[in-house]
Nucleic acid binder design. Sequence first.
DNA 1: CTATTTATGTATCAATCATTACAAAAATAA
DNA 2: TTATTTTTGTAATGATTGATACATAAATAG
Lengths: 193, 193
Amino acid sequence: MRGRPTIYEDSNIIKKAQEVFWQKGYSATSLSDLQKATGAGAGSFYNTFKGGKKEVFKKAIEERRLAFDAFKNELAKSDSPLELIKDFFRSIAEADTNEHLKGCIIANTVVEMTYIDEDLEANAVQILKEVEQMFTATIKTEQTKGNIQSKTSPEILGKYLITFWCGINTLRRMYPDKKILKDQIEMQLAVIS
Amino acid sequence: MRGRPTIYEDSNIIKKAQEVFWQKGYSATSLSDLQKATGAGAGSFYNTFKGGKKEVFKKAIEERRLAFDAFKNELAKSDSPLELIKDFFRSIAEADTNEHLKGCIIANTVVEMTYIDEDLEANAVQILKEVEQMFTATIKTEQTKGNIQSKTSPEILGKYLITFWCGINTLRRMYPDKKILKDQIEMQLAVIS
DNA sequence: CTATTTATGTATCAATCATTACAAAAATAA
DNA sequence: TTATTTTTGTAATGATTGATACATAAATAG
């Protein structure tokens, strides 16, 4: 292959940019912020990502979708998928303060991008719906197996969990406190049993 | 009183500005947006609000706190305060699409302003905590009166309601749909009974 | 009337915004 | 070697940002 060698790998730029977007959101993150965080100058940046800021944001979001897909694969292999989901919620309490304050980049994006960017908004909403769908499907199966006593429909319980996910996205900023969050999570998970 | 008469009333500027902030958030709202929405030019704007954009945003938030205080007064006078709170949640489902997409300006601010403006962030968090406290106090009283069967502590149930409030702030953007939201709200309120 | 006061509208400010232009650097192919 | 290709760093772009300067308008006080 010809040409000057790349020193700023695409995946690395996205990773570094993701952290900034995650903390500051889309609008408040400037190109200057991204250049500082990634080390790449405007030349490299726009040479790599013709779509500029928005393309990098999309890729950062896409990276999160992959993490979700990985979890969904774990879930498919698991013989106690409900416990896996519950442990996923329980693990929130164990996060450090920065993670609490950052919250979920997808849920943040839904809140931020309404009336700002229809495209980014719809994409984030879609991802949350897929997570919800994963919850719903798991609950449906477990109900059939008799592993859940609740007679509430899996659709409503699935929405209950995604609502909880979005709710705790704010609660953990109000109380970035392990003990408080732990108790709260256990109480809410008890509804699915 | 001497001087040219005011044609852009403070309260009216704040009201118009609030709608823009509510839809677009703080960062994405420009002075140009505010001038278009309020009709006031830069002269009037900065003559009235020396603190500029941030001062107007603070006042817009403060206006919401007053709305909350009014509700709290209603609650104090009510002889079925728990029903009043539940009806408040139920009324969310009746809102129009624009209201769904706007969500709660306080919850939105908590999500947006983390790592952006410590001052605005802390202020919004404080308001949510006051709402939570109102939930908690009401639940405590109603539990003592025997109007709530649940033995879960009022602190946890109060946090459950504020978490629900923040969660539905996102859910209503995913599903700005009366029927879906209504079912979801009823299911979640059933926990407090 | 004149002086004073306050609000308004417009022009302008420096700073920052996202993006582009372009020459130099650094590799490979021939 | 030389030509070609790609990345990089820097300078510059025009647009927009939040905010200020200032002359004028429009009222009241004396």
